Computed example of a mutant assay.
Amino acid sequence: MSRFPQLAPFTGGDGVVRVIGHRGARGVMPENTIEGFDFTLSIGVTALEFDVVATADRVPVVTHNLHLANSATRDAQGHWLTGPELRVADLTLAELKTLDVGGLDGRTVYGQRFPDQAFMSGVRIPALSELLDLCSKPGSEAYLLFELKSDPDLQDETAARESLVATAVAEVRKFGLAHRTVLHSFDWKLLDECRRQAPDMPTSYLSQLPENDDDPGEDSAKSVGPDYATMTVSVPRAVADAGGQLWCPYFMDLTPDLVAEAHDLGLPVCTWTVNETADIDRMIDAGVDGIVTDYPGRVQRHLLNRGLRWQ
């Protein structure tokens, strides 16, 4: 058994496959928002996956891309942003809070990916502290798969990496949630820094092989990840050798043999981002511990149909 109790909600078992809400429940609610996370918790999915980026005034906020997607962002007058996408690191928290992220522009490629997502107004990018406050309320059982986003332009700046980790970890500790937090990244070097600063929190290694395309409208993480072409061992072995406690591969990269190897190495496997029922079935059959999904309700119902549980 791992010495990290935080891993229990991300580890499957006999008849159990964990469900992890991706950016809350992006398929049906505005992503990475308090409204979306609150919905996800309300349906009995207590494991949340989300992304953290720092603002110009060094406040950690919950948003996926390093730039604000025009297809998902409106100004104070309700107009969709246009032109070059705004960089989160160039805006203060107060400036971010003037923007509305409660809906998607259905005319865009990204907006068309999620036609069932609710359209809301007055929804703001949350500071990390707002999400941690929600998750620390009495009675909450939320567990956090907490992705730290690396800026490819700052890959050689040690101070930037140290600052991002230090600020985020300090917020987690302030809200007393270290015992429910797993630190998670595509940037394996950043995870070394996480272990140095927060040895009491397990590290989760995201991976995506270069032959698989990025989804439209998403920042690519390939430039901050390891060089898979030079690896002389399997990815799960590389994760274990690097000191990881959880492996989170892209579902298109996963096979039953790799899941079995990871388990032999003591690594739970939570795969991302699995939305279609055929892929959900394939991941269950492969033996994964958890499924990261934009549609947690869909995965819940599919597990029930197969006589399985998620808690």
Rank of each mutant, 00 (worst) to 15 (best):
M1L: 08
S2F: 09
R3N: 12
P5K: 08
G13H: 09
G24L: 02
V28C: 14
P30G: 09
G36E: 00
D38R: 15
T40F: 02
V45Q: 02
D51V: 13
A69E: 11
A72G: 12
P84R: 06
P84S: 07
R87D: 07
R87K: 13
D90I: 05
D90P: 06
L99F: 01
D100W: 10
D100Q: 06
G103N: 11
L104N: 08
T108E: 10
Q112E: 13
M120D: 05
S129N: 11
S129K: 14
E130G: 09
E130A: 15
E130D: 11
S136H: 14
E141D: 14
E141R: 13
Y143Q: 14
E147G: 04
K149F: 10
P152V: 09
A160C: 08
R161D: 07
E162A: 14
S163P: 03
A166N: 09
K174S: 13
G176D: 07
L177E: 08
H179G: 04
V182C: 08
L183D: 00
L183P: 02
L190R: 10
L191R: 01
E193C: 14
R195H: 12
R196H: 10
Q197F: 08
P202K: 00
Y205N: 02
Y205P: 03
S207R: 03
Q208I: 13
P210N: 07
D214R: 06
G217P: 12
D219G: 05
G225E: 12
D227Q: 07
T232N: 08
V239C: 13
A240Q: 04
D241I: 01
G243D: 06
G243W: 10
G244K: 10
G244M: 03
Q245F: 06
D253I: 00
T255Y: 05
D257R: 15
L265T: 04
G266W: 01
G266I: 08
L267I: 07
T271W: 04
E276H: 15
A278W: 13
I284A: 06
D289T: 05
G290M: 01
I291F: 02
T293C: 09
D294R: 06
V299P: 01
R301Q: 15
H302Q: 14
R306D: 10
